[in-house]
Simulated scan of single mutants.
Amino acid sequence: MSTVLTILIIVAMIATVVALVRGIVAFLRTTEQDLKGTGPSASSLKQNKAMQMRILFQAIAILLVVLLLALYSGGS
C-alpha cells in the first residue's frame, strides 16, 4: 500500500511541476495587447487555469503525504 501511495505522490508532484511550468509559459507569452484589453484575455484565462490545476495537484500531493504518514504512524 505504501508503494502505491509513494508512486501516487511522485505522480502528483510531477503534475504540479508541469502545471507550474505551463502557467509560467502562459505568463511569459502575455503581450502588451493582452494587458491593455478589456476583460480577461485568452492568455490570462490560460494562466488562471494552469495555476488552479497547480493548486489542485499540490493539494492532492499533500493529502497523499498525510495519508502515507498516518499509515506509517498507525503501524508503529
Rank of each mutant, 00 (worst) to 15 (best):
Q58W: 07
Q52S: 09
M13W: 01
R22V: 10
R54L: 08
A61Q: 01
T30N: 04
M53Y: 09
T30I: 14
T31Y: 08
A26C: 03
I9N: 03
Y72S: 07
Q58V: 07
A42P: 02
F27E: 10
V11L: 15
A12C: 05
L28I: 14
S43R: 11
G75F: 12
L67D: 03
A50T: 01
I7E: 15
V11N: 03
N48F: 12
I55E: 06
Q58Y: 07
G74R: 05
L56I: 12
K49N: 07
A59D: 06
M51N: 06
G37F: 11
Y72G: 02
L68V: 00
M1Y: 07
T30P: 00
T16K: 05
V4R: 10
V4Q: 12
I10T: 13
M51Q: 03
A42D: 08
G75S: 15
G75R: 15
A70T: 07
Y72M: 09
I10Y: 15
L63K: 01
A61Y: 03
Q52I: 07
A15I: 05
K46Y: 03
V25S: 12
P40W: 09
A42I: 02
I9D: 01
A59I: 12
N48P: 00
R54H: 01
K49M: 08
Q52C: 04
A26W: 03
I7M: 12
S73G: 04
L71K: 10
L68F: 07
A26T: 03
E32Y: 12
G74V: 02
Q52A: 11
A50S: 06
G37M: 15
A50G: 00
G37T: 13
T3G: 09
I24W: 11
R54Y: 04
L67A: 12
I14D: 00
G37C: 14
L28V: 13
A19C: 04
R54N: 05
V18R: 02
A26E: 04
L5G: 01
I10Q: 14
T3V: 11
I24S: 09
Q47M: 12
M13P: 00
L56W: 10
V25D: 11
V65H: 01
M51R: 05
I14V: 13
P40K: 14
A19H: 02
R22D: 14
V25E: 13
V17A: 13
G39Y: 01
P40H: 10
L28C: 11
L63E: 02
A19P: 00
S2C: 14
G37H: 14
S41T: 04
K36V: 14
G23F: 03
Y72P: 00
V17F: 08
I62H: 05
L8W: 02
S44C: 04
V4N: 05
V21G: 02
G23E: 02
F57N: 11
T31I: 09
L68N: 07
T38E: 15
